[in-house]
């Protein structure tokens, strides 16, 4: 999941921004957002049985 989030963030950031500094910033924020969203959603799904 982290690997997937990394690649998606990388490609989106490189498409959206031109400067390496901006790319790193946006990519980092996006990656953090993906990981946080996954943790939060995983936490909410915890009580549900399979």
């Amino acid at each position: 999941m982290a690997l997937f989030a990394f690649f998606v963030s990388l490609v989106f950031a490189v498409i959206a921004k031109d400067e390496p500094r901006d790319q790193a910033r946006l990519g980092g924020m996006m990656f953090g957002g993906f990981m946080l969203a996954a943790a939060v959603l995983g936490w909410f799904m915890y009580p549900f049985p399979l």
């Binding site: 690997l3 690649f7 990388l10 490609v11 490189v14 498409i15 390496p20």
Partner: peptide
């Protein structure tokens, strides 16, 4: 160049994974 090289590495690598 920078963008092209990143796409050239990242996307086929993602596909290979």
């Amino acid at each position: 160049r920078q963008k092209g090289l990143i796409f050239l590495v990242a996307l086929p690598l993602m596909f290979a994974i």
